[in-house]
Simulated scan of single mutants.
Amino acid sequence: MRALIVHHAGPGVAVQDLGRPGYLAMGLTQGGAADLRAVHEGAALLRQSVECAVLEMVGTGGTFEATEDIRIALTGAVMTAQIDGETAAWNASHLVPKGAKLVIGPTRSGTYGYLHVGGGFATDAALGSRATHQSVGLGALVSTGDTLAIGADKGRDTGMTLTPDPRFTGGTVRIVPSMQTEDFDPAIRARFEDTTFRRDPRANRQGVRMDSDGEGFSNPKALSIVSEVIVPGDIQVTGDGTPFVLMAESQTTGGYPRIGTVLPCDLPRIAQAPAGAEIRFTFLTLEEGAAQQARATAEERKLPLQVAPLVRDPATMQDLLSYQLIGGVVSAADAPLDEG
């Protein structure tokens, strides 16, 4: 059986995919990977469907063994990685031979790292997805001693790389108006947009708390609302004025007012921001937001075209003549350093 044996698993390793759309009315958010961009990057590196299930790792990965030769790709938050003691590059694809040990260690930047395998993980599906959704009891974290089945792999290429989207240190996040945005005084909205927030350590797949200096952002006219539908990306402001960005496993309804909603393409920037990272929010109109989201979706579809070899073959380099290949060459017949 094609599988990955789990000799050791970190505390937050779980099978994820694109999630379960279409169940919001039944009380189930989509879930899926916290960083969907990383799922697309891994699919591009392995030349396979973005629907293939992956391993999401938080903080550290684990030690794994391949029962057969398998292809892997590593994306998302950069972690240390070795294949039988040899360093494996991140944001790249590799061959893991049968019996080899893949060791994925601590995070170097970002929060969520991803391990992709050729053919995807073939764990049991529920409601059309293999995604682990802990808050509702769908699936379970990967544990030491597990054996994870792997699907048939139709690809062959390894040793490919992809320049990652820079989303691992915080930065500016684009938001659009939400249902209660206009209920917040213009001065509060302006101050919210001018504030530099810090990603609070109290964060998980349900939501991320935003810290800031100075007074909070509660609005006396909208301290609470009748509970209504909410979605990942919504920014709820609690009674004490603290903003929370809702993430992949958020609840489906809530009674806190929302000052705005993060564009889906920018939500990975929130997910990957390490504790203490600085984050700013900037408002776009709904029309501007839709245009930016459409552009990001188009860019994701073009990721396979951006994949390149880790080590370039001179025979395939169309720009070979632009390189200086002889600088520093020393003649074997006339070596000036050997002269007395």
Rank of each mutant, 00 (worst) to 15 (best):
G151P: 00
G145N: 12
L127W: 12
K154E: 15
A126I: 05
A152Q: 10
D157I: 08
L127V: 07
G137F: 08
H133W: 03
A140K: 10
G137Y: 01
T158I: 12
G137E: 00
R156W: 13
T144G: 15
L138I: 09
A125P: 07
K154L: 15
G128D: 01
R156I: 09
G155W: 14
S135C: 04
R156C: 04
V136I: 07
S135K: 07
H133G: 00
T132A: 13
D153W: 11
A125G: 13
T132R: 13
L138K: 01
L127S: 03
L141H: 08
G155P: 02
L141P: 00
S135N: 02
T147R: 15
T158Y: 14
S135L: 06
L127C: 01
D157P: 00
T147G: 10
G145C: 13
S143E: 13
G128N: 03
Q134I: 09
D146Y: 08
Q134P: 01
K154Y: 08
I150M: 04
T147I: 15
T158D: 14
S135Y: 02
A126G: 01
R156N: 10
L148E: 07
L148D: 06
A126Q: 11
T144P: 04
G145K: 15
D146M: 14
G139C: 10
L138Q: 01
G155M: 09
T147P: 08
A152V: 11
H133F: 03
A152R: 14
